[in-house]
Computed example of a mutant assay.
Amino acid sequence: MPSGLVALLDDISVIAKAASASIDDVAVAAGRAGTKTAGVVIDDAAVTPSYVTGLSPARELPIIWKITKGSLRNKLIFLLPGALLLSEFLPQAITYLLIIGGAFLCYEGAEKVMEKLGFGKHGETLEDEITDPVAFENERVGGAIRTDFILSAEIMAIALAEVADESLVMRGAVLALVAVAVTVAVYGAVGLIVKLDDIGLNLTRRASTSAQAFGRFLLRFVPKLLTALSIIGTIAMLWVGGHIVVDSLHKLGWDGLYGPIHAAEHAVHEMAGAAGGVLGWLTATTLSAIFGLILGGIIALVLHKVLGVGEGEGH
C-alpha cells in the first residue's frame, strides 16, 4: 500500500512538472507572438480614445467597458476558433484575409485624412450636433467594435504566424493568452487616458500647491494628448494597413511594392550610419503609410463617388 501511494504521488509530481513546463512554454510563446503585434496594438490604443471624445465624462468608462467586452468577444468567440480552423485546414486563406483587413485599415485611415482636407464627411463627427445621445453612443461603440475586429484579426493572424509550427492545443492556448493580455493592456491604458482630465480636475482641488500645479498641467495636456492620439491613430492605420497589404502580397509572390520599399529601407540604413536602423525603419514605415493612403483613398473614392456608399446620409 505505501509503495502504491508513493508511486501515485510520483506520478502526480511528474504530471505537475509537465503541466508547469507547458504553462511556461505557452507564456514564452505568447510573449514572442505578442511582441510581433506591437504595431497593431499601438494603432488600437491610439484609435480608441476618439470613440469617447465629445461624450459625457460619466459615460467614458462604461463605453470603454462595452468596447472591451466587444473586443474580447471578437477575439475569443469569433477570431480564435476561426484562426485555429483556418490554420488547421486552410492556412493559405489567412494571407488573403490579411490583405482584406489591411485594405480596410487603409480605407479607414484615408477617409479620416480626406475628411480633414474637406472632401466630405461620412457618418457623424465631433463637429456635428448630437441630437440622440443614446443612438450616438451606440453608433460609436458599434464602430469601435467593428474597427477592433479588424485590428484583432490582424493581431491574431500575426500571433498565429509566430506559432504556426506548434501543436493545435499550444496554438489555441497562445492565441487565447495573447487575446486577453492585449485587450486588458490596450483598454486599461485607454481607460486611464480618457480619465486623465478628471484626475487633473480632482488634483486642482487639493490643498497641496504641487498637486494643484500638476492637476492644471494635466488639464492643459489632455486635450493635446487626445489630438495627438487621433493623428497617431490615423497614421498608424495607414502604416499598419499598408504594411500588411505589401507584406501579404510579397508572401503571395508579388514583390512590386515590397522590393522597392525594402530597397529604400536598406539604402537609408547603409547611408545613415549609427542611426541607420531607426531611419531605415522610418523610411519603410513612411512608404508603407503613403501606399496605404493611396490605396485607402482609391477605395474610399470608389465606395463614395462611384458606388454611392455613405453618400446622402445627412452629413
Rank of each mutant, 00 (worst) to 15 (best):
residue 1 M to P: 10
residue 2 P to A: 09
residue 8 L to E: 08
residue 9 L to I: 00
residue 14 V to R: 00
residue 19 A to Y: 13
residue 21 A to Q: 15
residue 29 A to V: 07
residue 31 G to W: 08
residue 32 R to C: 01
residue 33 A to E: 05
residue 33 A to Y: 09
residue 41 V to L: 10
residue 44 D to S: 03
residue 47 V to N: 05
residue 51 Y to R: 06
residue 52 V to Y: 11
residue 56 S to P: 03
residue 61 L to K: 07
residue 69 K to V: 09
residue 72 L to G: 10
residue 72 L to I: 11
residue 73 R to H: 13
residue 79 L to A: 10
residue 82 G to D: 05
residue 90 L to V: 14
residue 94 I to A: 13
residue 96 Y to E: 02
residue 97 L to K: 06
residue 100 I to V: 14
residue 102 G to P: 01
residue 104 F to A: 14
residue 105 L to S: 03
residue 109 G to P: 06
residue 116 K to R: 12
residue 118 G to Q: 03
residue 127 E to D: 02
residue 131 T to D: 15
residue 140 R to Y: 03
residue 146 R to Q: 04
residue 148 D to S: 10
residue 154 E to I: 10
residue 155 I to L: 10
residue 159 A to D: 07
residue 163 V to P: 09
residue 166 E to L: 07
residue 172 G to V: 12
residue 178 V to M: 04
residue 178 V to Q: 02
residue 183 T to V: 04
residue 198 D to C: 01
residue 199 I to G: 01
residue 201 L to C: 08
residue 218 L to G: 04
residue 224 K to L: 06
residue 227 T to L: 09
residue 230 S to F: 15
residue 239 W to T: 02
residue 241 G to M: 06
residue 246 V to D: 14
residue 260 P to V: 01
residue 261 I to L: 00
residue 262 H to R: 11
residue 264 A to N: 04
residue 265 E to C: 04
residue 270 E to K: 15
residue 271 M to S: 08
residue 274 A to P: 00
residue 277 G to A: 12
residue 277 G to W: 03
residue 280 G to V: 00
residue 280 G to K: 00
residue 280 G to N: 00
residue 283 T to A: 10
residue 284 A to P: 00
residue 289 A to L: 12
residue 298 I to G: 04
residue 299 I to K: 06
residue 304 H to N: 09
residue 308 G to C: 11
residue 309 V to Q: 02
residue 311 E to R: 14
